[in-house]
Design a protein around this nucleic acid. Structure first.
Length: 126
DNA sequence: ATGGTGACTCGCG
DNA sequence: GCGCGAGCCACCA
């Protein structure tokens, strides 16, 4: 099998975020060993397939809503509908999102994985 | 290979 | 706190 693409790595990490917690694009990039690839992480999530596409990674199987920017703010500017859906999904899991789409990272931040765990997940054992 | 495109981030003012 | 400009990166045509 080929080494999973960067996108797939992003999806797998996102799937480790527990409900009611959030992390940032930059942190995921850092976990994957690409400290400056935050933009690519956001791009990966924006490229998620539709739930009925039959693909393994879709907006239904990847908790994309648990990824916000490093300031704890919902960061979708060009897709207002998606931004609102993200806030709704997060509130449904008990995350407090204020009117400005702001989340208190001191409360809800998911710090991330240790390298050993990450290695297991990316290799398929997780 | 080259250039365009973002759901990013940091530093300034 | 907010807006801008400048890096940085993976993907796709």
């Amino acid at each position: 099998m080929n080494k999973p693409s960067f996108y797939v790595q992003v999806y797998k990490v996102a799937q480790q975020i527990p409900p009611g917690k959030v992390t940032s694009y930059g942190r995921i990039a850092l976990m994957l060993g690409h400290p400056n690839a935050a933009r690519a992480v956001g791009y990966a999530l924006s490229a998620l397939n539709a739930p009925d596409s039959g693909e393994p990674y879709t907006s239904a199987t990847v908790p994309w809503q648990r990824v916000v920017n490093n300031q704890g703010r919902i960061s979708i500017h060009h897709r207002a509908h998606a931004a609102q859906e993200q806030a709704n999904l997060l509130r449904a899991e008990g995350v407090m999102v204020d009117a400005h789409g702001r989340i208190d990272l001191n409360i809800y931040l998911w710090a991330g994985l240790h390298l050993v765990e990450l290695d297991d997940i990316l290799s398929g054992k997780g």
